[in-house]
Nucleic acid binder design. Sequence first.
DNA 1: GTCTATAGATGGATAGAC
DNA 2: GTCTATCCATCTATAGAC
Lengths: 194, 194
Amino acid sequence: MSKSNTKNTINAVSIDLFYKKGYFATSISDIARASGIQKASIYYHYSNKEDILYDILKTTAYDINESIDKCLTGVNSAEERLRIAIQNHVFFHIDRQKEAIISDSELRGLSVDNYKAIVKLRDEYDYKLQSIIKQGIDQGIFSNMDLKILSYAIITMCTAVCMWFNPSGRLSKEEVAQIYTDFILKGLKRGNFP
Amino acid sequence: MSKSNTKNTINAVSIDLFYKKGYFATSISDIARASGIQKASIYYHYSNKEDILYDILKTTAYDINESIDKCLTGVNSAEERLRIAIQNHVFFHIDRQKEAIISDSELRGLSVDNYKAIVKLRDEYDYKLQSIIKQGIDQGIFSNMDLKILSYAIITMCTAVCMWFNPSGRLSKEEVAQIYTDFILKGLKRGNFP
DNA sequence: GTCTATAGATGGATAGAC
DNA sequence: GTCTATCCATCTATAGAC
């Protein structure tokens, strides 16, 4: 079920504006102007302003869940699964930088029901990453540290790439992912603490 | 130069509201109502709404700089300095949880000059942490990984405690700081990568 | 599906009395 | 220092023509 042309434009323009100015600071007039239409026309495609934000957050949360399932298919060892999952997370947050930043900072714009729906998708994703780390601890590959705290730490750290990564900067996204996986695996792996 | 009673109330109430609802979603009327005064009275103490936010962000940024200088006095070894700096960072973000969250998410509310002033204070703090890691790398205590990326990663990871820490939860702030320092030091230290 | 026009509410901020 | 009263800009959303 793909969007119409106009709806696609509104969506793309909103991603751009929410990224640049923030959700609350962006008005329906701003979106209409940048889309080349009148603001009343927006309400034909979206029922209200929040609906535009919700559409972005839902799609992003859905897509990252799909991407991790896909990239882990057929991979079995805990260490390899974690390496791949981290790389996928870093790549996603670089490739979808604007949406990732919006997802990270504009949850406040949602009313209760929509908020719950996004948090549910996010919890599902977090659970997938936690399960990999748990598998590694259970198998004795990773040392027995606090699962919840460490998975929060790892996810947060990798999510933050969307805040500072510069596509024309010193490092490629492959290099960044490599630095992260090395650091995290070294911190997690067993039997090498001095 | 301490604040008057009313100004203190406005400040405390604003920290609470910005934390709960966000800066843009909080109106001057909200602040006045929660402070028990009329909204016009706020403009006797602050020149505008942004000024209230700027006051909070400036104080928080100043205080964390002061706290790291204080806790590192007289400590020389890179490893010990990093342990103490991480603990201080975690404690600050737990003890000043609301202000830390506002600092992390409401920079958008500032106009250019104020924004630059806060970023400057923040850069000074980041530089202090980076210098410790650099010292450890130069001394051969930490392995020679990418300094910029790792210091971003470490700061972000430790900053995130303010997002999930629950004072009445499973772990004390001392325990959380310990888990973080162990994980980070293990990831950084040299010669133990399998 | 897109437009013009406007309703209706709320926002930040100021004037001036006390 | 705090109040009442008010200005004026702007915002989301709707009505109804085409």
